[in-house]
Structures are given as C-alpha cells and as structure tokens.
Write a protein that binds this DNA or RNA. Structure first.
Lengths: 213, 213
DNA sequence: ACGGTAAGCTGACGGCATGACAGGACAAGT
DNA sequence: ACTTGTCCTGTCATGCCGTCAGCTTACCGT
C-alpha cells in the first residue's frame, strides 16, 4: 500500500538507510522547534544527525520536501482527533463536558506539534497546495464531525444555520488560539482561563444556546 | 521626534538615499507577496530595485530587518481600525450593522496587507518578540475597544464575563479567517457567506444574544 | 565657480550553503 | 573470499551572504 521508501535517485532504502532517513527527520523536527524556519539549513540538520549534507539530499529533494514528510506523519496522527467529537452528546451538562474535552484535546495536539504546524500554516497561507492539503486534513478531522454535530443539534430547528461555516470558524479559532496563546497572555488571559473561554465559544457555536449552570 | 533615517554604518540618509531605501522596501513587499518567505533573497530584492546587494546592506541589517520596517509602517496604518469599534452602538439592529462593518473592515485590512501579516504571524508564532509586539499592536487596535464594548454591553449584568478573553478570541478568529479564507472555500463556504457568519459570531460574542431578525 | 565634505553606490572578495556525482565502505548472501 | 547492491562521503561548481575599500555624486560655504 504505502510503497517502499525510496531515495531521490530511485533506489529502495534498506534497514540502515531508513534509520538514517528517520534520524534526519527527527533532527529536522528538533531544528524546527528551536530555530526560525527561514534559518533552518540542510547543513545544520546533517551535522546534528552526525552525517553529511550529501546524505540528506539522497533522501529528500530539499528542506521543504523533508518538512512535508514530517507533516504527513503528523497528519496521520491527527486522525485520532475525530474521537473527540464522534459519538459525543451535546445535550445539557454532558454537552459542555464534550466541549471542554474537545478544546483540551485539540489544544494539546496542536501544542505537541506546534513547530511543524507553524510551518504548515505558513505554507498554506502562502498558497502552497501540498501544505494546504495537509492542513485541511488535520482541521477536517475535527471540522467534519463537528459540522455534523451542528446540523444534528441546530439544523432541525433553524434551516438558516450553516454547519460547515460554524464548524470551520470554531476550528479556525481553536487552531489560531493554540498557535498564539501568548497573545492571550498579553491580554491578561491566563492559559488556564483560555480553555473555559474557548469551551464556551464552542458550546455556543454548536448548540446555539448558553450552557446550563 | 522620529529621529532621522540612518544607514547601518550611522550616516544620515538624504533625499536620494531615502528614495533608494523606499524602493528597496517596495520591492521587498512585492517579493513577499509572490514568493515563499523562505525563498526571498537579498540579491533578488536588489536586482528588482535595480541596485546592488551591497546597497541593500547599507540600509538594512538583513531581510528580516527590512521586513520589520515594512511591518512597522503597516502597524501605524492599523490605527485606523479603531474607528470600526470606537463609539459604535451594539444595540439591536444597529448593533448587527456595527458587527458587519467591523468584520468587513478588518478582513479588508488583513487582505490588503496579507503578505506582510503572514510573515509577522509566523515570526510571532516562533516567539520573536519584535514580531509579536507588532502583531499585538495591530490586533489591539481592534481588541482593546472591543473588550471595552463587551464590558459595557454584558459586564453589567454578568460579572463572570471576561471582556478581554472574548474580544481576544474574536480578533484571533477574524485574523485567522482572513489569513485562511481558502480553507472556508474548501468547506463549501463562499467568501460572501463567510462575512455574515463571522458577523454573527462577533455579535454573539459582544452582546451575548442572538441578533434581531 | 570651485573646492571640501559627506552621502551614495558598487566591484570584489572570503565564507558558507547548495546540490550533483563518482567512488569507496559496508552488509549480506553464495 | 567474492559478488552484489546498499549506503555514505569527499569533492566540486555554483550561487548567495555580508563586508570593505574606494569611486562617484550631490550639496554647501566662500
């Protein structure tokens, strides 16, 4: 299914080769979280991995290519986010718990992968289709089931509600909040206070009502 | 007050120098909107401006330095966004119009400066204080008066409402929506439909009520 | 008009990253 | 030990970075 891992010049990579490749990816991941994207150089990644730049180019066309690889890995991982919404109830107090857990899980995921997601977000904003697609995959893992939840909860009583638009806005909000939580700090909102505030927004968006006391 | 414009080596720039400097900034701005940030090179900017790389380094320490300059200019410009909130009423139908105009004005501003804002957003997310500060200045031009509006509208009846948190979330949402409007398109939400949807969110957030029909 | 002075620009250069290649090291099977 | 295919690196041409010395240009006072 996945097809074998191949080098840039078409050879199939063996055990040792895959190890080196993986080590390069790990080092790149680390570099991304410590240096500005613009300053990440092939030579630094290679040095950190204890190998030479030439080796890097055997497995990846360039830094961007390797970044896409990491991104793809992460996108696979994002499938688990579905469980935060799928099959959950939005009624009454249980509903608010659902909302809190969603916010919590989403923020945790984003924070865990913040370095790579930062680059993906940039690439997507710049109009790069490959990055855009990956970003959509991550967001959709939550946005799709959430839109469904909105339709189930509000769609019956109010036909003018657009589930996709609401879910999209909520997911966009969550992603941006995770990426820029420091901004909230500077507004005097502690990270601890941020979560309930977002949970409230999500609950409001999905149900259209204020949460029960 | 502003202090004269100076070259990197301390000379004060005269008329001709300021022209060249400005031309370099203009070309950089253009480059940013056509190439990925990572690929913007000093030599390209210089070539486009019809000058030599050495000249570039006379006015800016590096690409980032010049970007900060453009960003600062833009941040000055963002002061006008205040008028979208200051002195506006949030009551009844007028309130919803206020919301619509705010969304419209904010999105227009963001779209007009999307290239530079993209870079600022990245820099802020990466933890660069200079970029962070500029981003806050732009966001605060709306967030600060908006928080005030929330307090005036809801704060009297409900002490648990945190105006800063709500205003912050709304502004974060608007910024991210502007930056990633393509994502909404892919969710089947047209740009035309996006605005009313955001206006609704803003109105809800500020007033805590559904808008009048 | 004419020199003096400071601004303005660039050619040239060492240094470093990129990206390609060919050849040597290495592991595994025979 | 020998072969085969994988794996790594030394080396090289190319191109960008960032600096400097030095030349040109504009402005100013006399």
């Amino acid at each position: 299914m996945t097809g074998q891992v191949r080098t840039v010049d078409g050879r199939v990579a063996g055990r040792r080769g895959q190890e080196t490749r993986q080590k390069l990816l790990d080092c790149l991941r680390e570099m991304l979280s410590t240096s500005p994207y613009r300053d990440v150089k092939v030579i630094d990644v290679a040095r950190m991995a204890g190998t030479s730049p030439a080796t890097f180019y055997q497995y990846f066309p360039d830094v961007e290519g390797a970044v896409l690889e990491i991104a793809e890995e992460m996108a696979e991982d994002s499938g688990g986010l579905k469980e935060l919404v799928d099959g959950k109830s939005w009624a009454g107090k249980t509903g608010f718990t659902t909302s809190e857990e969603l916010v919590d899980g989403f923020l945790a995921f984003w924070r865990k992968n913040d370095a790579i997601l930062r680059v993906i977000t940039l690439g997507a904003a710049e109009g790069d289709k490959r990055f855009f697609k990956i970003r959509m995959k991550v967001l959709n893992s939550v946005a799709a089931p959430l839109a469904e939840a909105v339709r189930n909860t509000q769609g019956k009583t109010d036909k003018t509600v657009d589930g996709s638009a609401i879910a999209g806005a909520l997911v966009t909000l969550l992603a941006a909040s995770a990426e820029h939580s420091k901004a909230f700090t500077s507004w005097g909102v502690k990270v601890k206070d941020l979560k309930p505030s977002l949970a409230l927004q999500v609950y409001l968006g999905v149900t259209g009502k204020k949460p029960p006391k």
